[in-house]
Design a binder for these strands. Structure first.
Lengths: 212, 212
DNA sequence: ATTCCAATTAATCAATTGTATAATAAGAAA
DNA sequence: TTTCTTATTATACAATTGATTAATTGGAAT
């Protein structure tokens, strides 16, 4: 007479989401190696077999978790900018600042992003996600810069976008990995100052005007 | 009557180096999870047991491989700068430029670096190696900036170093991953221009003076 | 209440992992 | 040549991995 543990039947969406959330939590705590099938199931309050009921494989679950996270990151940066009531300078400032604080600044995001870089070669289906996130981010930055009240050649505009994107990327990387080394909001300050210097505008002032 | 495979006894340094090289190759090709004990041994033309003879554990080997990689990258940048005959401005320019061209700019290096990210987060001692090498690079940069003929607070100096390091990191990343998108030497030009703008000096001119 | 689909559990599988240990042979030393 | 150290191989082990299957039971539909 074996006693089965009691369980609840959940809606498909809800269950998938909780499994993805559990996977992300584990990656956050101990890297990708910690996110085993059993650990994920345990964290989600479920037995391992259920994972295969919702995902065709563990890699499938990992992939979906990555997609979910990336979408969230894009949304975080874009939503700050989508306030079209602001002038171009303030919009750019919001975009830069929100790219350099949580949830965009996040060790989990870096770990998943790095892991994705290696597997992009083998898995063509994920290549579109990569393009939609990485290059999409840079294009958005370039259009924000183009809206600024200054006249520059398209040549110079391209270089500006590349340089500004590089600062943000670099700060995002090291800020996420060595978050202990930076004071709160320090990354935002450095980012705003640096992008401002690169473009010849005062982003820090523009940001302070809108945020407080 | 078992036939043992023939083998050569190698010097300790040589053997350790070949094992590390094999591990790096595998990480570059298939990520950290591809670098199993057996795969590494196979690649190095050796049997798995030997790894434990040279390294106290597999994590130990991984750690040493990462340290070796980071040290090599730093050395490539530092050697360009060590020409102490140049004035401070020219030395900084050399440092920036050499960080943005091969062999530092290299798709394999990025793949390798990305492959280690997860391990860095998982293993505290890997984290130490990362912090030491990253901060080492940044400190080099900071001391170069400190030598410039300008007077700034130590606060500002730190921020400058972080920002310049971020530009270099971001350009290194973009340039290595999307090397097709850039004209030859374009990354160096953007890097010199950007770092110059951040610090308020003309690095591009300083670089041209010394290199041609 | 009863029926019945499928969400979930439980148990097991084969493969792979890092590690440990004893046997062997390479090659320097004598 | 002979001796001797130890680098190297060979083999095995215990733990963990992702995956598979059959048995259950939750809970909506009837």
């Amino acid at each position: 007479m074996t006693e089965r543990r009691a369980y609840r039947r959940e809606a498909e969406d809800k269950r998938r989401e909780s499994l993805i959330a559990a996977a992300l939590e584990l990656v956050a705590e101990g890297g990708a190696r910690a996110a085993t099938v059993r650990a994920i199931a345990d964290r989600a309050g479920v037995t391992p077999g259920l994972i295969r009921h919702y995902f065709s494989s563990k890699d499938d679950l990992t992939r979906e978790a990555y997609r979910w996270l990336m979408n969230q990151m894009i949304e975080a940066s874009v939503s700050a900018m989508s306030n079209s009531a602001l002038d171009p300078l303030a919009r750019l400032a919001s975009f830069v600042a929100s790219s350099l604080r949580p949830p965009v600044i996040d060790p989990v995001a870096v770990a998943l992003w790095a892991g994705f870089i290696q597997e992009v070669r083998r898995d063509p289906s994920m290549r579109e996600v990569h393009a939609a996130t990485y290059l999409g981010f840079r294009d958005q930055l370039e259009s924000l810069i183009a809206d600024l009240p200054r006249t520059v050649s398209s040549e110079k505009l391209r270089m500006d976008a590349i340089a500004c994107n590089a600062v943000i990327d670099g700060l995002w990387l090291e800020g996420s990995m060595l978050s202990d080394s930076f004071a709160p909001r320090e990354l935002e300050r450095i980012g705003l100052t640096s992008v401002g210097l690169l473009l010849g505008v005062d982003l820090l002032a523009a940001f302070k005007d809108t945020s407080q």
